[in-house]
Simulated scan of single mutants.
Amino acid sequence: MTAEDPTKAWEDLTLDRQRAVVETLATVTPLPGRPGRSPFDPRSVRIEPLQGMG
Results as ranks from 00 to 15, higher is better:
residue 1 M to H: 08
residue 1 M to I: 03
residue 2 T to N: 13
residue 2 T to S: 15
residue 2 T to V: 11
residue 3 A to I: 02
residue 4 E to Q: 06
residue 5 D to T: 04
residue 6 P to F: 07
residue 6 P to Q: 05
residue 6 P to A: 08
residue 7 T to V: 09
residue 7 T to Y: 11
residue 8 K to N: 12
residue 9 A to K: 03
residue 9 A to W: 10
residue 9 A to M: 03
residue 10 W to V: 00
residue 10 W to P: 02
residue 10 W to M: 02
residue 12 D to R: 03
residue 12 D to M: 05
residue 12 D to Q: 12
residue 12 D to V: 01
residue 12 D to L: 02
residue 12 D to K: 07
residue 13 L to P: 07
residue 13 L to D: 09
residue 13 L to V: 09
residue 14 T to Q: 15
residue 14 T to R: 14
residue 15 L to H: 13
residue 15 L to V: 10
residue 15 L to S: 12
residue 16 D to K: 12
residue 17 R to H: 13
residue 17 R to Q: 15
residue 17 R to G: 12
residue 18 Q to D: 04
residue 18 Q to P: 04
residue 19 R to E: 15
residue 19 R to S: 13
residue 21 V to A: 10
residue 21 V to R: 03
residue 22 V to W: 09
residue 23 E to N: 14
residue 23 E to T: 13
residue 23 E to P: 10
residue 25 L to C: 13
residue 25 L to I: 02
residue 26 A to D: 01
residue 29 T to E: 07
residue 29 T to R: 06
residue 31 L to E: 09
residue 31 L to H: 11
residue 32 P to W: 04
residue 33 G to L: 02
residue 33 G to C: 02
residue 36 G to R: 02
residue 36 G to K: 02
residue 37 R to H: 15
residue 37 R to E: 14
residue 37 R to M: 12
residue 37 R to P: 11
residue 38 S to T: 15
residue 38 S to D: 12
residue 38 S to N: 15
residue 39 P to R: 06
residue 39 P to W: 11
residue 40 F to K: 00
residue 40 F to N: 00
residue 40 F to S: 01
residue 41 D to N: 10
residue 41 D to Q: 06
residue 41 D to K: 04
residue 41 D to S: 04
residue 41 D to H: 09
residue 42 P to R: 01
residue 42 P to E: 02
residue 43 R to T: 13
residue 43 R to L: 06
residue 44 S to E: 06
residue 44 S to M: 05
residue 44 S to D: 10
residue 45 V to P: 10
residue 45 V to D: 07
residue 46 R to G: 09
residue 46 R to E: 04
residue 46 R to C: 07
residue 47 I to G: 05
residue 47 I to S: 05
residue 47 I to V: 15
residue 48 E to R: 00
residue 49 P to R: 01
residue 49 P to D: 02
residue 49 P to N: 02
residue 51 Q to T: 08
residue 51 Q to A: 08
residue 51 Q to K: 09
residue 52 G to H: 06
